[in-house]
Amino acid sequence: MNVGFIGTGTMGSLLIEAFIASGALSPAQIVISNRTFAKAQALADRYSGIRAEKTNAAVACGCEIVFLCIKPHEFKKAVDDLKAIVHPRQIIVSITSPVLIAQLEDELNCKIAKVIPSITNQVSSGATLCIYGERMDETDKAKLEGILAHISEPLRIQESHTRIVSDLSSCGPAFFTFLLEQFIEAATEETGIAREEARKVASAMLLGTGLLLTEGGLTPADVQERVAVPGGITAQALEYLKGETGGMFNQLIRTTHNKYRDDLVKVSASFMSEEVNGQ
């Protein structure tokens, strides 16, 4: 099975490298293109066997699955490039959340899926969110999830929940490492502990906490209850955190959702513009 990747930026390269490292795909099974061809060729040079093509259409030819790893404003051109090339048995996979399944199904005569990866997939961990169009049958879904399972836990979600689940799965690592970074900086400033030492301890703590919440079967509330002795240091610090962070994550979610709605409008306008101009 040959798999194509249109776009070799941050997430496109991450997926390609993770698939190769996990054994899900060999370099010889991968065909790539990028708006700047030199970037695609540089990746192909690093992994002998990958074929870099100068056009998106060339990537789609002969590939059973094609990942569109591009930004929202690049979709109209990519779709135009693929319209005359794709066939009904092919699976086109968008990794861009504001591009809707229905928009791609209206434009392309093939099977459509959307997956939202995470930086955690780089170490074969975390989830990949899967959303499927009406033309995808269970065999198609199993084929795609079989590849994704090498680097993640594929989770099927409703498209209406794309943004909030993306916040938790894909944006979450940035949010919580930001908080961890603030914790480390404060520890350094307040106590004089070496920053690298504090980073190692805090990172190991975060890893262990993640395992408690997954393999250990504990909930966040369980962890807090077990660590915080009533009247103790942790309990007092938790009360402080509750007072300082109340409503913070509500506002964070409002922020991501507002940006998502703006992107939805822009993507929809680009597709509608094509319909108006083409009548």
Rank of each mutant, 00 (worst) to 15 (best):
M1Q: 08
M1E: 07
G4K: 00
G4N: 02
T8N: 03
G9R: 05
T10E: 13
G12I: 05
I16E: 03
A24W: 10
S26V: 09
A28Q: 14
I32H: 02
I32P: 00
S33Y: 05
T36Y: 09
F37A: 12
A40G: 08
Q41Y: 01
L43H: 05
D45M: 08
R51Q: 11
T55W: 03
C61G: 05
C63D: 05
V66Q: 06
C69E: 04
F75G: 04
F75T: 06
V79N: 00
D80A: 15
D81R: 14
P88L: 11
P88V: 12
Q90P: 03
I92P: 05
S94M: 02
T96L: 03
S97V: 13
S97K: 07
S97R: 01
I112H: 03
I119F: 05
N121P: 04
I131P: 00
R135K: 14
T139M: 13
L144N: 02
L144W: 02
A149F: 01
P154M: 09
I157Y: 01
I157P: 03
Q158Y: 11
R163I: 15
R163A: 13
C171L: 14
P173T: 13
A174C: 11
F175W: 15
F176D: 10
F178D: 12
L179T: 04
R195E: 08
R195L: 08
E196V: 12
K200R: 14
P220I: 02
A221E: 10
E225L: 07
V229Y: 10
G231Y: 07
A235S: 14
E239W: 07
E244N: 09
Q251H: 14
T256E: 11
T256K: 07
K259Y: 14
L264H: 07
K266T: 09
A269L: 09
G278M: 08
